[in-house]
Every structure is written in structure tokens, then in C-alpha cells.
Design a protein around this nucleic acid. Structure first.
Length: 282
DNA sequence: CACCAGGCTTCGT
DNA sequence: ACGAAGCATGGT
């Protein structure tokens, strides 16, 4: 297989910031940049000069072009934030200007965010890594081995004890149950044909999927940007920076979507990035 | 020892 | 419709 390299101007694409804002868990530092994994594919990304370079298999070029959402004009989204008249949003946007929302595989995203619930990011990464290493398929990329995200069929074959063994805790049943449902014909990819309201109805009907996971999957897996996931960081932004009084996270999410409309998801990423960067020690 | 992490299900009221 | 308990695990 042949590799190919393509580039994209970095004024609205910062690879590190895009990866670090909690939408994806499978990536590792590599040379001057990162290796990013999706399903059974991998791309090597790094910044140089005014460009982000993406190196992948020739046959995966279109996949990663879409994956990094390179058809979208982020300058408009950014300008919307800067013209909002909301100081904290302007500050966040200028810090997180290079954050993009990826177009990840819907099924991998769904499993990943079920795993993410009531869990911290380093541990989420560890669980998903063990899941792939133990039952994913072996692949090669730039001379190194990696493992694909396992298929639902493979996962459905594994006993519950396997899922507990990789550290899933009580989420083990959610994951196994979803795998067997998909094997029985549940068409998660087909949800992309639904409007956002119907999509969210189908997602929250799944065992282990509540409002927060649903919003993350809607935004990161189905690119429904009128979604605003509310976690502890966003709740802090809401209370500290928007002087919000609502206590219920579902209502806080509704409030932000009402306020930001179709740009809600992008602004959520800006705000998440800002709040988390204050506490992060790299 | 507490408390928390990109929360959800179940059960009372 | 809403609130609280219970849930696994590992980090601080």
C-alpha cells in the first residue's frame, strides 16, 4: 500500500487542540505530531509552517479529508463567536480558534461515549486502548503495529467478564448489550437519515445512553451542531461565566442550544477547551 | 480517608 | 415529572 500526504492551512486547524478537546480518545504523540486512529485506519498529523500535514494510506485520503471536516469554512463559525458580544465566548474562541469538530464513525463514537460516562479522560483512553489491543484487528502504519476498533460482531462474541476485565466496571453491560443489539440488526449508521430530534430519541432509547452521551454522539458522530453536551466543565462555565442559575444539566443544554442555535456545538468546544485548559497540567 | 471523573438506570415521591 | 441512591474503577 502506498502512503500519501496532503496539507491544509492551519489558521483554523490546530491538530493538538482539536484532539485535546475531548471528542476523540484514540490518538498518540508521534514524531513531531500525532497518530490518529479511526476504525481500522490511521493518519499521521503534524504542523509545519502554516500547514497541517496529514499522512495516510492513499485509499484513506477521502476518509480523513472528511474526518477532519476539511470542507467546512470555520472562519464563519469563528466570526460568529467573535461577533456574539459575549466576552467569555470571544476569549475562548480566540484560544481555541484551531479546534474543529471531527466526523468520526458513528458506531465507534457511540461505544466510546458510553464508556466515557462518569469517567475521566485518561482512564477512558486506557479502556478503549485495551479494548482495541485485545480484540481489534492487527494493522500496520508507517512500520508500526496498531489495532483497529473492534467490530460489534467481535465484541458480541466476548463474555461480560472480558469487558469487566478491561476496566469497564458497570459500563460493561452497556457495551456488550449495544454490541449484541447491532448484531441483531440495530442500524446505528442509518440514524444519519433522521432529523436531529428523531436521532436523539433513538439514541437515548439505547441502554446506557442518556442525555449527555446522546449529545456527544449527536455532535461528534453525526455532526449535529445544534447539540451542546453539558459535563462538569461546561457546568462550571455556565455558573461561573454565564452567571447561570439552572441546576439541571438537561436544561442547561437546552438553554445553550436556544442561545447559540446551529453553532452551539462549535461554541461548546471553544468553551470546553477554555475551561479545561485552566486546570490542565501537560 | 474522602471526593471526583465528558452519567445512567432504577426506584420513590 | 423530578430527585436521590447505587453503581465500578482509578486518580488525587
Amino acid at each position: 500500500m502506498n502512503y500519501i500526504k496532503f496539507s491544509f492551512n492551519n489558521s483554523f486547524f490546530n491538530i493538538k487542540d482539536t484532539l485535546d478537546c475531548g471528542q476523540i480518545f484514540r490518538y498518540v504523540p508521534f514524531n513531531a505530531g500525532y497518530k490518529v486512529f479511526s476504525l481500522d485506519k490511521c493518519a499521521y498529523c503534524y504542523e509545519q509552517g502554516e500547514n497541517v500535514f496529514i499522512e495516510c494510506l492513499e485509499t484513506d485520503k477521502e476518509y480523513f479529508f472528511n474526518f477532519f471536516d476539511l470542507d467546512r469554512d470555520y472562519s464563519k463559525i469563528y466570526e460568529g463567536a467573535m461577533l456574539s458580544g459575549i466576552e467569555i465566548l470571544k476569549t475562548s474562541a480566540s484560544l481555541a480558534k484551531g479546534v474543529r469538530i471531527l466526523n468520526q464513525d458513528t458506531i465507534e463514537t457511540l461505544f466510546s461515549f458510553i464508556i466515557s460516562q462518569n469517567n475521566n479522560i485518561p482512564r477512558i483512553k486506557g479502556i478503549i486502548e485495551r479494548l482495541c489491543r485485545e480484540i481489534g484487528e492487527k494493522r500496520e502504519f508507517l512500520g508500526e503495529t496498531f489495532y483497529s476498533f473492534p467490530s460489534p460482531q467481535k465484541m458480541a462474541q466476548m463474555p461480560l467478564e472480558f469487558f469487566k476485565g478491561i476496566g469497564l466496571g458497570y459500563r460493561a453491560e452497556y457495551v456488550r448489550n449495544l454490541a449484541t443489539d447491532i448484531c441483531s440488526g440495530l442500524d446505528v449508521n442509518g440514524f444519519s437519515l433522521l432529523d436531529t430530534k428523531a436521532l436523539k430519541g433513538r439514541l437515548t432509547a439505547l441502554y446506557g445512553v442518556g442525555r449527555k452521551v446522546c449529545d456527544c454522539v449527536s455532535l461528534f458522530g453525526f455532526h449535529r451542531s445544534d447539540s451542546f453536551p453539558v459535563d462538569t466543565w461546561i457546568e462550571k462555565v455556565y455558573k461561573q461565566d454565564f452567571n447561570g442559575k439552572l441546576q439541571n444539566r438537561d436544561k442547561i443544554a437546552d438553554w445553550f442550544v436556544e442561545k447559540f442555535g446551529i453553532n452551539a456545538g462549535y461554541y461548546q468546544q471553544y468553551l470546553f477547551y477554555y475551561k479545561r485548559s485552566l486546570q490542565l497540567k501537560d
